[in-house]
Design a protein around this nucleic acid. Structure first.
Lengths: 231, 231
DNA sequence: CCAAAAGTGTTGAAATTACACCCATGT
DNA sequence: ACATGGGTGTAATTTCAACACTTTTGG
């Protein structure tokens, strides 16, 4: 099943990956969690995860579960850190690699999510999760906040077309503080990675707000030059 | 040997950790690498690492090898990322967790280092390393640069007592660029986490430079308040 | 007395913050 | 006509970057 094992004298263990899946909906940051249907811990909430198989990388494993549950591919996902305490899992020695993902909540497949007993929870209503998953969520949120300072990853959480008020609300949700709309616009537009569209979103006001989209090419250029995207 | 294994149907693999060990000596950033004494790849250079045992955490494993080779405990060490490509190691499926460490090069145990066939290499003379260890070094350096921007980890590389010119040379080595000494001092001192000592270091000039030490308590206070240490 | 490194202030530019009103439109 | 959210500019403050000379002292 696998090639010769030259390290036979050493210990092997399970390697798992757990996904901290962020979404943004209705002005609120949400997390996709999973309600166990079977014992042990039936009904308990956990992150979505999987054991890593011998013939897949950790990233592949995470993408596999993510697609199973949301139907989405090519989601923004990044390694957070490993959770490797000896006693973290009472099944057997198992380390888990936390990965956080940002998904566009308008794109995921509702049926799949329901079928897998997964639920979007607003962050501030999040109940306790199994094992060390609470810590993972805490770490992921801290990472998201830090990361959003120097890379415009906020866009990963928004639909293809979004308005500046939406973007601002997202950043306010991430940082948990109000921002000044004039300064926010000035800053965001100064990066030069937003393309203003003709179309307006009239769903939240009479006047309507212009849609923008993210200019990925321009962004790559700037990253290459080492530009700082702090908001 | 271990409690009941409830996950028997899943794959197990080796988990290793590799340490990217930074030192600072003679105004130069250096890396501690290890020359293999036995086949395969006799004479090849690699990072210092170990398999993780069932009864130790990854951090414990890394501290274990680090102490074995340098004699040091309580070294600054932090997880970098995992290296988990399916084919990264030709021995067997094995993921490695990279950890980078900063050590005070005046404190390590020279005899131990020699005994283990380890060598301090200046960064810009570093030859190729085995497996994906080159990538690990590259990632670690990038992380060090980023991290040094918002946390004063530079101090971890210096002796207990250090002078401002030394500190500046270190930062210049990390960022590979000259800095203005007036601006550098102004900035560093403005953080308020340095304590000026009476004593002077006369080893590099007739006039002598005042020693400083790092105020850990004050630093913790500031971290708690969320202060930014960008240099 | 002089070479060599340590130490020190000021000024202009740039970035950041604070702040308040008009606009467009569906009802 | 009015309520609602969208959109805009300016002035004060703070931060950052550039810049050159004096001090100390061992040899």
């Amino acid at each position: 099943m696998w090639k010769e094992d030259k390290y036979g004298m050493h210990d092997k263990m399970y390697v798992a990956t757990d996904c901290i899946i962020f979404g943004f909906d209705d002005g609120i940051l949400k997390l996709l969690v999973f309600k166990r249907r079977i014992a042990p811990q039936e009904g308990a909430l956990s992150l979505i995860g999987s054991f890593v198989k011998l013939d897949e990388s950790v990233t592949e494993a995470a993408n596999r579960v993510l697609e199973e549950i949301t139907g989405l591919q090519n989601v923004f996902m990044e390694e957070l850190k490993t959770y490797n305490a000896v006693e973290r899992d009472d099944g057997y020695r198992c380390i888990s690699i936390g990965q956080y993902a940002l998904i566009r909540i308008d794109e995921y497949d509702k049926n799949l999510v329901e079928k897998h007993n997964a639920i979007w929870y607003p962050f501030d209503e999040l109940p306790a999760l199994v094992l060390d998953h609470d810590q993972m969520v805490k770490d992921a949120l801290a990472r998201l906040r830090r990361k959003a300072r120097y890379q415009p990853i906020g866009f990963e959480l928004l639909p293809e077309k979004f308005t500046l008020p939406q973007l601002q609300i997202l950043y306010e949700a991430i940082y948990q503080k109000k921002m000044d709309s004039r300064n926010f616009r000035k800053k965001v537009l100064s990066f030069g990675v937003l393309i203003k569209l003709e179309e307006k979103d009239k769903s939240t006001s009479k006047k309507g707000a212009f849609y923008y989209k993210f200019n990925h090419e321009k962004y790559q250029e700037l990253i290459a030059k080492g530009i700082n995207f702090e908001v």
